[in-house]
Write a protein that binds this DNA or RNA. Structure first.
Lengths: 130, 130
DNA sequence: CCGCATCCGTGGGGATACTG
DNA sequence: CAGTATCCCCACGGATGCGG
């Protein structure tokens, strides 16, 4: 893994960024930070996630050591997912983003409206209509 | 925009998360945080970005009020991009992620190797070969 | 209940060519 | 130099069905 030069492909930072870019991963991390959950609990909790993505994302998180998977050998098997200590440290950073979002949402929206008002004046044909 | 319930689609947090999830946006933000840059400077600086994505991402950032676009009316037109105050506040949060990445990279890699050693023992056909 | 395999549609994003 | 427009591909992710 190369030195921390985010402008080179495949640098450490990019790897993490890609994981954070995964919206499902972040949401799962937030949920598990509060308490452990079972598979279908998560499924119901997270609006719009497919079973495939949930499964897939959980495996990634487990692989990265951010989430722990505990299998209970009951009759219909029971699986519980919980956040690991490492996961909690990432959660802290991610949470900073959440806070930023809530703090500056208004500013962003204002900027967007301004931009749209200024630039979205199309309908001025550059070349004469045919 | 709904209340801060990240589990509902289209919540504020998700919007920001999606923007941060955009790796190009983050990289641009980091570059511009150091100093203003021109279009093709950014292009050269960022390994692997296409001209289309650069253009597209810059417009998003400008629309969100995170980046400022200054046009100099020289003969071959000159355009400079710089980070806004709002952009700097976001940069702070993003930087926390960068730090996390560099700090815990080793842990993640270790976890991954462990996981792979444990689980990637395929080659045991569940059903007989045809 | 948990989760993998398969099929398949959509759109994100790369390459290229062109304009102001 | 700074973009826009077009084509095109393939990987991401949804839906469905099966297996432990």
């Amino acid at each position: 893994m190369p030195a921390p030069d985010p402008f080179n492909r495949k640098c450490a930072t990019r790897v993490v960024l890609d994981r954070v870019g995964d919206k499902w991963a972040v949401l799962i991390l937030i949920l598990l930070h509060d308490e452990a959950h079972r598979f279908n609990e998560l499924r119901r909790r997270i609006d719009g996630i497919s079973q495939k993505m949930l499964s897939q994302t959980l495996r990634s998180l487990e692989r990265d050591g951010l989430v722990h998977r505990h299998v209970e050998a009951t009759v219909p098997v029971t699986v519980e997912y919980s956040i690991t200590p490492l996961g909690k440290t990432l959660y802290a950073a991610v949470d900073a983003l959440r806070v930023w979002a809530e703090t500056h949402l208004k500013d962003v929206e204002t900027a967007q409206k301004r931009y749209d008002r200024t630039n979205e004046k199309p309908a001025r044909p550059l070349r004469k209509a045919a």
